[in-house]
Design a protein around this nucleic acid. Sequence first.
RNA 1: GUGGUUGUAGCUCAGUUGGUUAGAGCGCCGGAUUGUGGUUCCGGAGGUCGCCGGUUCAAGCCCGGUCUACCACCCCA
Length: 467
Amino acid sequence: MATKPSIPKGTRDFSPVEMLRRKYIFTTIEKVFQKYGFLPLETPAMENLETLTGKYGEEGDRLIFRIQERGRTFESGVSKAVESAGTTDLKALASSTRKLTASEALRYDLTVPFARYVVQHQNELVFPFKRYQIQPVWRADQPQKGRYREFYQCDADVIGSKSLLNEVDLCLVILEVFEELGLDVQVQMNSRKLLQGLGELWNVNDRLVEFVMILDKFDKIGNEVVEEYRKAGFSDMVIREVSAFLDLLAEKRGNQANIDDLMRRFKEKGITSGCEGIEELLWIQDGVVNARGVAWENVSTNLALARGLDYYTGAIFEVKALEGTLQSSICGGGRYDDLTGIFGLKNMSGVGISFGADRIYDVLLETGKFPADLGGSTKLLFANFGEVEAMHCLKLLRQVREAGIAAELYPDQVKMAKQFKYADDKGIAYVAIIGENELKQGIVTVKDMKTGEQKAVAQADLIGAIQ
RNA sequence: GUGGUUGUAGCUCAGUUGGUUAGAGCGCCGGAUUGUGGUUCCGGAGGUCGCCGGUUCAAGCCCGGUCUACCACCCCA
């Protein structure tokens, strides 16, 4: 017997009901993007491997799905590797074999392909270039709740402008999208410059990435990060400073006093990056408040926020749902000063955000926030009484459809119970009955499936009867 | 990639210290109702117990492996 069919791990099928909900999310996001002047872009599912490698850090490289090409089997890769390396040492061969068996890969995110696109088409684009992109991405990760190997990202980026107005605009996009979706969220901001300032302040810049990664765990494990710093071998001075800093943070996160104090210390020591970082964050916050007319307490600074991506250089954002049980972020983004530099185009600063549609879906489902009626279902079903009646219905069917009403004719002449059950299962609002009697009299019996009421109307009045 | 939990009908789950033919509810199909769904009543179908192997006279139950989903780490949307 054939084994049960299945799909690869971390991937999903989407049923019609699920698709209606997903489209609701996509169109909500897309409408906001368009309203802010972003234009659509699509790039291929696969990129050249070298376009992607080295852009997401060591861990990211491992999570890239490589495509094994025709005629480049693992065996041929191994033998070529042995040939060129002149060794049979397994470890030495592993990496070169991988390179020889794949030269293409599935996209890992939308930002890097976007950067590649900008560089390739720099002469045709109008800068600042604002694009949005809603497409699936793939990661060879270990699946978990809210973590898939194939999922959609909804990105909006502005490239070719250093203005912080772009950051403000993107914040407004985030707030508007979640407002439209009816979801309470917390938008957290931080700045790479500020984090670098901290590094200078405590003299840990030689290990800044490691330092920041541990700091990022603060939200999750709290003061245990102090222990992590100790384990990682940071000096007593650093540990003392950090833990005092964290105490302040826990007490009054994002508090003005906290930030003022930090600013004062940056100034004393002449740490310009730290000062800039703080000034920028305050400027962005002012802008958001100014635009909306009111302070928005759900936009806050989180000095312990980091984002793993190597390319962020300025402000960074992360959004978490305040409802539901999902702890991971549902939207993230930031400024990157030199993303296109690696592809040969210098001085192209950009800033972007990315919505995780699949996670947003999970949260909306869990919290019951999807609208009850997402449309998509037929409004009127013509019952089928046989060939003569069906032929007659086709005319009416066309009229109803021309009026913009989704309608269908049951394709088979089967007993009424079955046709009504079909209408019921599909959530069809009305059933039009034209049997022998109705045909003779030129009328149609219309049944309201919700109330069960039934009335006979002239066929010319059918459309009026179902609105 | 490392460690842990899990898997029985389409769905949610029972299944005793290993012991005849593996159960329930919901759903599905048929009938009561040859022009009426959602309610009611009657009947029916559907499972090599995730997959492969082992122990045993005997395995849904014990052991090993593997896959999936989930959880922690890592990282992230």
